[in-house]
């Protein structure tokens, strides 16, 4: 389950923010902001992706770097909150 979430998120980041650049070594704990992978608009794209893909309604208080600023943090956040959209 965890692997699936992480891989989905990783694919989204590579396609949407790195434009398919698979040569980029995206470490699980790398900061998405410090590495210029997401900007303020990118965070909103990330939120929309999480809500659409994982059926999570994100409150304003959830939208913080502690939850979203690395692949590992995003995966952990989704894992803690996820409710499957479909069976």
């Amino acid at each position: 389950m965890t692997q699936t979430i992480k891989e989905k998120v990783k694919t989204f980041i590579i396609e949407n923010f790195l434009f398919g650049d698979t040569s980029y070594d995206l470490a699980d704990t790398a900061s998405l902001i410090e590495n210029d992978i997401v900007d303020s608009t990118g965070v909103l794209e990330l939120v929309a992706f999480i809500e659409d893909q994982f059926g999570i309604a994100m409150a304003d208080a959830d939208i913080v770097p502690a939850n979203l600023d690395s692949l590992a943090r995003i995966s952990a956040f989704i894992e803690a909150k996820a409710v499957p959209v479909t069976a």
Binding site: E34, S40, L44, A61, I63
Partner: peptide, 16 residues
């Protein structure tokens, strides 16, 4: 005038 910033938390604003 930047819509992407309107909804951001203080933590994100500082990080950006």
């Amino acid at each position: 005038y930047l819509p992407g910033l309107k909804q951001q938390s203080a933590e994100y604003l500082a990080a950006f």
